[in-house]
Design a protein around this nucleic acid. Structure first.
Length: 483
RNA sequence: GGCCCUGUGGUCAAGUGGCCUAAGACACCGCCCUUUCACGGCGGUAACUCGGGUUCGAAUCCCGGCAGGGUCACCA
């Protein structure tokens, strides 16, 4: 058997859709699992859609994700070029070959004429299909128009009867009546560029792609591709059609939701590893209970038999959980480095101990973008309702606070070496003297200096982070607030 | 609308005719740990879309309904 070769063929739009990342991932995993090659090909046949810097977005995203290609525009390979626009001159001869074989023909109908016929068909409640109008032109008529420079497209001469079948590795045997799935689709556009459909077949064949892995939206157009392969006498590749990644049961993840792009998630503070790990599990499972995978483990575990046939909903909540697991397990220094800009967002200029803060925050970080809101109280004392001094279990309430805070004040003022340990020791030494439970002292203290029921870290950690002056100031302010 | 695909808890999912009075994970709820929260530990609620078959036996096979999705471009 030939070496497995898969490809990811995105068009450069300037963004990488998560669905695309997943498709690329599976194509990569499949190739690697089978000791094959993964090829990156840029499909930019649509000149009108050209976006500056868009191919870099594709490179960067894939590289970040660890989806590395063996052949591609930037690194070359034996089957280049890997950018369709640079292959432009290659397609027309193939289209002509098809014309010679009777599997395609020149069409001189203008867009306007076709639009008219389409509108007319729709008015009659019919679905428009190109009517093979130009197929009836004689060889001489065609040549005459060509010589006269009349603009043309080349269309596929699709069969109108019969049934087309093929086998999909995920969906099994597929069968379509030709009257429904076939269409005289355009192969070469008026501008001389091939359509995506045509270029795809040519490129996949020329690049020796053995397994075509793509979204299931191509399920019903695959017979057309197969018609082309057959017309050329080429071997038809294996197909692996992937389900759609959905936002909810009705909608797929779309650009308009603002959270369909890889970059959106990175901006929000998701870790690439978590994102890739999670994405791998939407529509595929390892057949075991394992949920956390490195790329190598993914390669080992990947098996098309465990690819699902039903679409999966992208569950951000679960992604957040997975991300928090990755955050917790990540190297502390890396966490500190990544968290620092987010700390700055809330605490810029406060000169706080970021190292200590990071220690406290690492287990409390699900996604980085939520850090500022969690630590905002450190920058500025929130306006709070004194009712939160009440906590049944800690035996605390406003009256207890009024009693305990004044006791605490001199103790804190007496701490000369403002470390967590000394604050802790000083306070803890006094609590038994006051005849209080720890909670009855520490709950009010924490509320008094944080203004929040829950905080990352306890009273001593918060006090340390805040510094002596600020702690004392907040204590006094809260005491005032209570009376 | 034609054609095609899909249908297990709120979500991801295991399940390929008996091992299913249906696993695991997220979320949710409760308990424990704890100076709060988080982390962690333990436990709980919750599902085979419906109707017909086939079979000794069906979540698993067949048919139909229903629901959702995809596709019908000189876009990719």
């Amino acid at each position: 058997m030939n070496q497995v070769r898969t490809r990811f063929a995105p068009s450069p739009t300037g963004f990488m859709h998560l669905g695309g990342v997943r498709t690329a991932l599976y194509a990569y995993l499949f190739a690697k699992k089978n000791g094959g090659k993964f090829i990156l090909r840029i499909e930019d046949t649509d000149q009108e859609r050209f976006v500056e810097g868009a191919t870099e977005v594709i490179y960067d995203t894939l590289r970040d994700c660890g989806i590395l290609w063996d052949e591609g525009p930037d690194i070359g390979g034996d089957y280049g070029p890997y950018i369709q626009s640079e292959r432009k001159s290659l397609y027309l001869p193939y289209a002509r070959e098809l014309v010679e074989k009777g599997a395609a023909y020149y069409c001189f109908c203008t867009k306007e004429e076709i639009e008219e016929r389409r509108a007319a068909a729709e008015a009659r409640g019919e679905v428009f299909k190109y009517d093979k109008h130009c197929l009836n032109l004689s060889r001489e008529e065609v040549q005459a128009k060509l010589d006269a420079g009349v603009p043309y497209v080349i269309r596929m001469n699709a069969p109108t009867e019969g049934v087309s079948t093929y086998h999909d590795l995920v969906f099994g045997d597929m069968s379509f009546p030709n009257s429904d799935c076939m269409d005289d689709m355009v192969l070469i556009k008026q501008d001389g560029m091939p359509t995506y459909n045509f270029a795809n077949v040519i490129d996949d064949h020329l690049m020796g792609i053995t397994h075509v892995i793509r979204g299931m939206e191509y399920l019903s157009s695959t017979p057309r591709y197969n018609f082309l392969y057959s017309a050329f006498g080429w071997e038809i590749p294996q197909y692996i059609h992937l389900t759609t990644v959905m936002r909810d049961a009705q909608h797929k993840l779309s650009k308009r939701d603002g959270d369909a792009y890889y970059s959106d998630f990175i901006r929000k503070g998701f870790l690439t590893e978590a994102l890739v790990n999670y994405l791998a599990l939407v529509g595929w499972n390892p057949g075991t209970d394992q949920e956390f995978f490195t790329m190598d483990e993914l390669v080992q575990a990947f098996d098309v038999r465990h690819l699902n046939k039903s679409p999966g909903i992208f569950d951000v909540t679960k992604l957040e959980w997975m991300n928090s697991q990755y955050v917790q397990k990540m190297d502390f220094d890396r966490y500190l480095e990544m968290a620092t800009p987010w700390f700055d967002k809330a605490l810029a200029g406060k000169g706080m101990d970021y190292r200590r803060l990071a220690e406290l925050m690492q287990s409390r970080t699900d996604i980085f973008s939520r850090i500022p809101e969690k630590i905002a109280f450190l920058a500025e004392m929130p306006d709070y309702d004194t009712a939160i001094f009440f906590n049944k279990k800690q035996k605390s309430d406003e009256n207890v606070a009024k009693e305990v805070l004044p006791l605490l004040l001199p103790v804190l003022e007496g701490v000369s070496d403002w470390t967590e340990q000394s604050i802790h020791d000083a306070v803890m030494a006094k609590i038994p003297e006051w005849g209080k439970k720890n909670g009855a002292v520490l709950w009010p203290m924490r509320i008094a200096i944080s203004g929040q029921e829950s905080t990352p870290g306890g009273a001593f950690e918060i006090a340390y982070l805040l510094g002596k002056d600020e702690t004392i100031r907040r204590m006094k302010e809260s005491l005032e607030k209570l009376s």
